[in-house]
């Protein structure tokens, strides 16, 4: 602990935080637009949430309550590591409760519990550019965004349907924000896409790629699709084996080496809260060929 007092509140110096806040304000003013920012080297590797951590560090105040999730869970290793980082460097209160948190940093999920006004959801973003795998050049993709030259994005979806009969994107599913910018919602499952229109502020940080973008509260977010192949949020066709929820995103867990598996909520806080309030597991076990014993 003594060593950590060498560092400023939430690790970053105040100048850097101000620089990030300016980028955040710009991002809020132009929903879905990727704002370049001078990302700093953080004490965790690029690709492990440095963008999200910088955004969180710039937003945190001593009175905040922080929740960190990875894959929907509070107890996954990287979530633990980031939560500890802020416990050490910012001494903020932490929680696993979605409701109790004022700032939630997430990787790959949106909590099941609807967020409310005043909360901030910070996403860790590996590749912010939705056009990157169609056009590798930054100079070109920036131009495409500037000119709303998004035909190529639909060509990709067209090719998916021509080949597979379906749009073959299941996560990081591209969206159009407020009718203007095409945006990568980070690798959340497309099940979460409808929640992108919400009451809370959503901030996206990509450290390695030096980009910040944002969705202000109640902004329109539309998942790209075709009229005759509409966007479908999908999930495993099961109910949670622990709390019985049939409306949540589920993780599939292999329970033995004979093909037995069970499905449980990926949002651990949501699942635990349901269980605590007496929700019952699904009546029928869900696995095949071997029935799992939850």
């Amino acid at each position: 602990m003594t060593q950590d007092t060498h560092y400023n509140f939430a690790y970053l110096d105040e100048q850097t935080k101000r620089m990030i806040r300016r980028a955040l304000l710009k991002a809020m003013a132009i929903p879905g637009y990727q704002v370049p920012f001078a990302s700093r080297e953080m004490p965790m590797p690029y690709g492990w949430g440095t963008g999200g951590v910088q955004v969180s560090a710039a937003c945190l105040t001593p009175s905040d309550t922080l929740k960190v999730i990875d894959q929907g869970a509070d107890d996954t290793t990287n979530a633990v590591s980031i939560r500890k980082f802020f416990e050490k460097t910012a001494q903020v209160a932490t929680t696993e409760s979605t409701r109790a948190a004022s700032l939630i940093q997430t990787r790959h999920r949106i909590p099941e519990e609807p967020l409310r006004e005043g909360q901030i959801l910070v996403y860790q973003v590996p590749i912010p550019e939705p056009l990157r795998f169609l056009e590798p050049r930054e100079t070109e993709t920036r131009k495409m965004h500037a000119l709303q030259d998004y035909g190529l994005m639909h060509v990709k979806l067209y090719e998916d349907i021509a080949r597979h009969g379906n749009i073959a994107t299941s996560y990081a599913y591209p969206v159009k924000v407020q009718g203007r910018y095409v945006m990568d919602p980070s690798p959340i499952p497309k099940f979460d896409n409808p929640k992108l229109r919400m009451a809370a502020i959503q901030l996206f940080g990509a450290g390695r790629e030096q980009r910040i973008y944002a969705i202000p509260p109640y902004t329109d977010v539309v998942s790209l699709d075709f009229e005759d192949h509409p966007f479908e949020p999908s999930k495993a066709n099961h109910a949670c084996s622990l709390c019985g929820a049939d409306h949540t995103y589920l993780d599939e867990v292999i329970v033995d080496d004979r093909g037995g598996r069970m499905f449980v909520c990926s949002d651990t806080d949501y699942c635990a809260t349901r269980q605590a309030t007496g929700a019952a597991p699904a009546q029928t076990a869900t696995s095949q060929p071997q029935e799992a014993q939850p």
Binding site: G151, V155, Y158, I161, F226, E227, D228
Partner: peptide
Amino acid sequence: GNVGERLMAVGARHY
């Protein structure tokens, strides 16, 4: 996809 690109670029959204 090559033929359809220009249509999609100007807003065609019916596969």
